[in-house]
Computed example of a mutant assay.
Amino acid sequence: MPRYARSEREALADLMLDLGPDEPTIDDGWTTRDLAAHLVLRERRPDAAGGIVLPPLRGYTERVRRRIAAHPWPELVGQVRRPPVWSPLSNPLTDELANTMEFFIHHEDVRRARPGWQPRDLSAGLQARLWRPVGLLARAALRRFPADLLVQAPGHGELTVGRGGERVRLVGAPGELVLFLSGRQRVARVQIDGPPAVAERLRAARLGL
């Protein structure tokens, strides 16, 4: 059975080691060191991980992340590469579910911050796996969007979200839709069909879980 989470994790760790700790990423203001520390915190510090999604806890989370980021670079990347088996997010039972999308996104956060990047030719299996969370991402990010938004991944499926109104179509491969709906609109290779003002609002919206 393919292990997409593992392959994306390994590829990201290899790329981070090649580039070094001070390279930019798509996450505004974050370097590769910042991103690596985020990933280590998420899997190894459940006491601090809540601040990733809960604003009242973000101060503590950020302090812990900065302490983790101070570790030597090879050690930090090694912790990204070799997650603890006790982690609720990275044990053998949960790794594929919890980490395939996570590590795909962050792999692309580093790749697409480099000059001259091009989309990868993803396997059909990985594209199918990335289609699964598209509905959750779309409903979480766009359920209140003031349009009738049709999200389509040719060969995989489609869904409709939004509050209704003018009709807009968002089309792309599953991996590109995951990037778009997680807030990486500026680097996602998608097609938007609809009124220009609504399309521009969609490209500028604050998206993500």
Results as ranks from 00 to 15, higher is better:
L159Y: 13
V77C: 10
Y60L: 06
A153W: 02
T100I: 10
T61Y: 02
R201T: 03
G20M: 04
T94R: 08
R66S: 01
G125E: 08
R112Y: 10
G29F: 12
P84Q: 08
L39W: 04
W86I: 13
D95K: 10
A113H: 00
L39F: 03
G135Q: 07
V198D: 06
W86Y: 11
E75Q: 07
L207W: 03
G116F: 09
G208F: 00
R67H: 02
R167E: 15
L97M: 11
T61P: 03
V187S: 04
L177D: 05
T100K: 07
L170D: 08
Q118C: 06
E176M: 00
V80A: 14
E62R: 14
G183N: 09
I192L: 00
P196L: 04
G78E: 15
D34L: 09
D95G: 07
R66L: 00
A49Y: 04
A70D: 15
A69H: 02
A141F: 11
R186Y: 02
I105F: 00
P146T: 13
G183D: 11
R33V: 13
V110W: 05
D193W: 06
A204Y: 00
G194W: 11
R82I: 04
R9E: 01
R139M: 02
D193N: 14
P84A: 07
R186D: 04
F104M: 05
Y60A: 06
F104P: 01
E8A: 07
V134G: 07
L97N: 00
F145W: 09
Q127T: 06
P72D: 14
R111Q: 02
V53N: 00
A199D: 04
P84S: 06
Q191I: 09
A147M: 06
P133R: 03
P46F: 14
S87A: 14
W117E: 08
T25R: 01
G135M: 01
E158N: 01
V198S: 06
V190K: 06
R169A: 13
G172Y: 05
L122K: 15
L149Y: 00
R65G: 00
P88M: 13
E200V: 04
P55A: 12
A138L: 05
